[in-house]
Structures are given as structure tokens and as C-alpha cells.
């Protein structure tokens, strides 16, 4: 056999990884990406004549489809079908979300925080069903074409009460060896740090509280974390932050900025009129 150049190797690698769907209702369209514990492809569903996403699951992630199927939430991609490929690898089929992962979407601060709140909402829901995600990071959050925010890649997700072993991506991973819901809170804190690289003091306090080394020192729930971020957005008091008098005044001034500007404008114009008539 002659030499295989790099492009041929790349195509062979894709052929090696591609699922064999010849005896199924799906036709392979193109690879979408490879996440923790599996590769995702765009496929055509002949039965319903629509494009869907098919994830081929690697070893150790057999429970993924069942876990995701348990999580019916607007922030979590719904599962339509599951099965096994002829080579024995399990797969599941889910809604195909047209959009970009969070790390490729430039977001200004208030918008970034609103996206973050939607992520918190999905994670709080998963926690309420006893599931921890274990691999929260910007690459696993999809912003859809119509602004929908979806938490993807539940490949390493586990039962929250089981104290599952550590998994996920360094930099977003909590330090404790056994993963619980608090570990997702830590990852949410790291995600917030990534979204807002230069946070103002109250937001910095939120991040610090979420990313405490000891799990019990973090927010008790994703909902609590979301509550503090909402307070920051609304200009009300952030629980995690002890603010000085100056900070409180600045916060109130920011919150009522337009009122202050309007009244000041009125006073300036009124003063001009006053002196005009005094001439």
C-alpha cells in the first residue's frame, strides 16, 4: 500500500468513527462534533422527513440516553429515539439544534448573564431530578438561532446522590473527588468567570462563592446562584457580597440612572429658564 497522506488519514479516521446506518431509518449527513463520550452527526430521519442529531456513545456512557430522556426541559435537548449500531455501539437521536456553542458567540455583559441564568435554570431542573451534569463548560452550551439556550453533552452525567467519581474538563472541574450537585455549582461559577472575564465586585463575589474549594461553602443550589445573579442584573442587593455605603449608593444610582438623568436635566433647563427670565 502506498503512503497515506494526512488528508486521507483524516477521512479514514472519520470513516472509522462514522456510524453504519444502512439498515435504519436514518441517513448520515455530516459529522457535527465530538464531545466527551461520543460523536454527534446530523442525520436525516426518513420516517418523519426531518434532520435530527444522532449521538454515538462511547464506552461507559450507556446511561446517557436514559438520563437525558428523563430531563424534559426547554433548556435540555429532547431525546427522540435510541438503539444500537451493527458494531455494538449504542446511539440516541435527539433534536438537531441549529446554532453556535457559547464560546463562539460574543456576548455583552447583560446578555451573557441572561444566558447564564437559563443555564442555571436547566441545571437546577436536572438537580431536582437527581442528575448532575459533571461537564459544564461553554462548549457544552448551545445558543440556538432563535436565542434558545440548551445544555448539551450529558455523556458523563450521573445520579446526584451516588457521589459519582470526578469527570469533566480541567478548569471547570470541582476539586472534590466525589461529584455532587455542588460540583455543578462550582462549574457554573467557572462558566460565569469565563463569560464575564472582568466582573464588578458584586459579580466577583458571586463567582467566589460559587467556586469555593469546600462544597458546603458554595451556593446551596443552582437556583440560589441564579437568584444572586438576577439581583445583580436588577441592581438589588447580592447576597454573596458585603457592600460598602459607596457601593450601595453607586448601585442605587445605576439602578435609577435614567430617573436621575431626567430630574437633573429638568433642573438644569429650569435653572437656565430662571436666569433667562431674570435678565
Amino acid at each position: 500500500m502506498s503512503f497515506l497522506p494526512d488528508p486521507a488519514l483524516r477521512r479514514l479516521r472519520d470513516a472509522f468513527d462514522a456510524p453504519d446506518l444502512s439498515d435504519s431509518r436514518y441517513t448520515l449527513l455530516e459529522p457535527i462534533g465530538r464531545g466527551g463520550m461520543g460523536a454527534v452527526y446530523a442525520v436525516h430521519d426518513a420516517a418523519l422527513d426531518r434532520r435530527v442529531a444522532l449521538k454515538v456513545i462511547d464506552a461507559g456512557a450507556h446511561a446517557e440516553s436514559r438520563i437525558v430522556a428523563r430531563l424534559e426541559h426547554p433548556g435540555i435537548v429532547p431525546v427522540h429515539d435510541s438503539g444500537t449500531l451493527p458494531d455494538g455501539r449504542p446511539y440516541y437521536v435527539m433534536k438537531l439544534v441549529e446554532g453556535e456553542p457559547l464560546h463562539r458567540v460574543p456576548l455583552e455583559m447583560p446578555e451573557a448573564l441572561r444566558v447564564f441564568l437559563r443555564v442555571c435554570d436547566a441545571i437546577a431542573f436536572a438537580h431536582s431530578r437527581g442528575i448532575v451534569h459533571r461537564d459544564l463548560k461553554p462548549e457544552n452550551i448551545m445558543i440556538g438561532r432563535f436565542g434558545e439556550v440548551l445544555v448539551l453533552d450529558w455523556g458523563v452525567a450521573a445520579e446526584a446522590h451516588a457521589g459519582a467519581p470526578r469527570a469533566g474538563t480541567p478548569g471547570f472541574q470541582a476539586p472534590e473527588p466525589e461529584v455532587t450537585a455542588a460540583s455543578d455549582i462550582y462549574s457554573l461559577g467557572m462558566l460565569l468567570r469565563e463569560l464575564v472575564p472582568e466582573p464588578r465586585p458584586p459579580l466577583r463575589s458571586i463567582i467566589e462563592r460559587a467556586t469555593q474549594q469546600r462544597p458546603e461553602a458554595r451556593y446551596e443550589s443552582a437556583a440560589d446562584l441564579a437568584r444572586d445573579v438576577t439581583a445583580f442584573l436588577d441592581g438589588t442587593r447580592v447576597q454573596a457580597h458585603r457592600e460598602s455605603l459607596g457601593e450601595a449608593a453607586a448601585r442605587l444610582a445605576r439602578k435609577h440612572q435614567l430617573w436621575i438623568v431626567l430630574i437633573a436635566t429638568y433642573l438644569v433647563l429650569r435653572t437656565i429658564l430662571f436666569f433667562w427670565f431674570r435678565r
Binding site: L258, L262, Y266, L273
Partner: peptide, 22 residues
């Protein structure tokens, strides 16, 4: 007349702006 009507109208203009913007 002008001493009263101008400041009064100014209040109206600002309220008009605020009800659209706030």
C-alpha cells in the same frame, strides 16, 4: 405667560420622554 408655560411644557416633554424610555 412665558415664565409659567415654558417650565410647565418642559415638565411635559420630560414626562413624555420618560414614558417612552423607562
Amino acid at each position: 405667560f412665558w415664565q409659567i408655560i415654558l417650565p410647565g411644557s418642559l415638565v411635559g416633554a420630560i414626562v413624555g420622554f420618560a414614558t417612552q424610555k423607562l
